[in-house]
Amino acid sequence: MISQITALTRIPKEYVASVLLFVLLLIILRTSKNFIVQLLKKFAKKTTNEIDDMIVDAIERIPWFFYITLSVGIATKPLALPLWVDKGINYAITILIVFYAVRFVNNMISFFAEKQVAKQSESDKGEDTTFISIIGTITKIVVWVLAAIFLLDNFGIKVTPLIAGLGIGGIAVAFAFQNILEDLFSSFTIYFDKPFKHGDYIVIGSDSGTVEHIGLKTTRIRTLQGQELIVSNRELTSIRINNYKRMQKRRVVFNFGVVYDTPTEKLKKINKIVEKIISNNKNLELDRVHFKELGDFSLNFEVVYYINTREYKAYMDAQQEINFALKEEFEKEGIEFAYPTQSIILEK
């Protein structure tokens, strides 16, 4: 027993001081953590945003191992430890700090990505939010890569040749996957520029349909005939697109003809008849009515009006009502619609 006490008294004072400092730091860190968490929780209850709740959660999730390692690192600084031990402790502290910092940043990225998805879902229920999740994932990967480069640089590893090698390899990969990368970047152009979005009715060349999905490489369109049309994003960003969903109101032009036997007095009534028919529909706005031309077999009129909707079915319903009303009014006035005819003149 006496020999053990004698052995303990031979322990250098700096080691005893380091142990006491380690215990003291551990107590302080633990107490400070509890105090800060309780303080932040009280503050978080008074606010409506969720960022402070996320900060509290991030602090609470830091385990005991982190505080122990940090306390060991600080407490052993005054000691003359072997170089490999000192480096090992410093590396462990650096790795832990970077790890929890990256995890906090990634949680922030996930939080803002989820908020953006919820915001878009509320404002436009049909919009595809896949890109937000993809951008969030890519951003997280970039953060981890930057953290890895930072750690390697702190460990004394030269990262410049590594980055240069990755750059050369990236150029080779870019050439090998040129078309895929073009589609990928085109998809980001579509997302940020928004020439169309999920649910829009678009016309591209001779094809048309409703956008059902915007992916990383292709966009899928459901045509009026029912089949699925798959178009590369690269093609969609290099051609003209007519987006009928963005149309505020539809401009309609239609023509009709009456027979040449129609008296001039009745011809002059046709403008008033058309104006009356269109004015009776509150969704229609008349632009003009004109006796346009003397056709081969008919006296032709041209009518231009606007309908306050972009829906094709509503437009066809309105045009049908106009056609019925014209037929009815012309029957009352004794005006006949023209149809293709030929007159044969016989000479003796």
Score class of each variant (00 low, 15 high):
residue 222 R to P: 00
residue 22 F to G: 08
residue 86 D to F: 11
residue 275 E to A: 11
residue 344 I to M: 09
residue 56 V to T: 11
residue 257 G to D: 08
residue 211 V to P: 01
residue 135 I to S: 05
residue 115 K to H: 05
residue 176 A to G: 06
residue 215 G to Q: 02
residue 120 Q to I: 08
residue 315 Y to G: 12
residue 24 L to M: 09
residue 139 T to Q: 03
residue 104 F to V: 04
residue 247 M to Q: 14
residue 270 I to R: 03
residue 283 N to L: 14
residue 338 A to W: 07
residue 166 L to Y: 06
residue 191 Y to R: 03
residue 305 Y to D: 07
residue 130 T to Q: 10
residue 331 E to G: 00
residue 260 Y to C: 05
residue 8 L to S: 05
residue 293 E to C: 00
residue 154 N to T: 11
residue 327 K to E: 15
residue 336 E to N: 14
residue 247 M to H: 05
residue 20 L to Q: 09
residue 272 K to I: 06
residue 240 R to I: 04
residue 102 V to Q: 10
residue 210 T to H: 04
residue 212 E to I: 02
residue 127 E to V: 15
residue 256 F to W: 08
residue 127 E to A: 11
residue 236 L to D: 03
residue 276 K to A: 12
residue 280 N to W: 03
residue 117 V to G: 05
residue 348 K to T: 14
residue 104 F to I: 03
residue 173 V to W: 03
residue 129 T to W: 04
residue 52 D to M: 13
residue 321 E to C: 03
residue 189 T to Y: 05
residue 36 I to A: 09
residue 73 G to I: 05
residue 81 L to M: 14
residue 28 I to R: 07
residue 125 K to E: 12
residue 2 I to C: 00
residue 342 Q to S: 12
residue 176 A to H: 05
residue 178 Q to F: 08
residue 178 Q to Y: 12
residue 309 T to P: 03
residue 279 S to N: 14
residue 346 L to E: 12
residue 229 L to Q: 04
residue 316 M to A: 11
residue 193 D to E: 13
residue 250 R to N: 10
residue 15 Y to L: 10
residue 168 I to W: 02
residue 226 G to L: 06
residue 65 F to S: 11
residue 198 H to F: 11
residue 346 L to Y: 14
residue 13 K to A: 12
residue 216 L to K: 01
residue 158 K to T: 04
residue 191 Y to I: 07
residue 328 E to D: 15
residue 203 V to G: 02
residue 73 G to P: 03
residue 147 A to M: 09
residue 215 G to W: 00
residue 63 P to I: 01
residue 127 E to W: 10
residue 186 S to K: 02
residue 253 V to R: 14
residue 293 E to Q: 09
residue 184 L to K: 01
residue 293 E to N: 09
residue 278 I to Y: 04
residue 165 G to Y: 01
residue 308 N to L: 10
residue 74 I to L: 13
residue 202 I to E: 03
residue 282 K to M: 06
residue 241 I to L: 04
residue 25 L to S: 11
residue 145 V to Q: 11
residue 95 I to W: 08
residue 63 P to R: 03
residue 157 I to G: 04
residue 305 Y to N: 06
residue 90 N to P: 00
residue 347 E to C: 04
residue 226 G to S: 07
residue 263 P to D: 11
residue 290 H to G: 02
residue 72 V to T: 14
residue 158 K to N: 14
residue 14 E to W: 04
residue 135 I to C: 02
residue 194 K to P: 04
residue 150 F to E: 01
residue 206 S to I: 10
residue 6 T to I: 05
residue 63 P to F: 02
residue 91 Y to A: 13
residue 161 P to G: 02
residue 166 L to F: 13
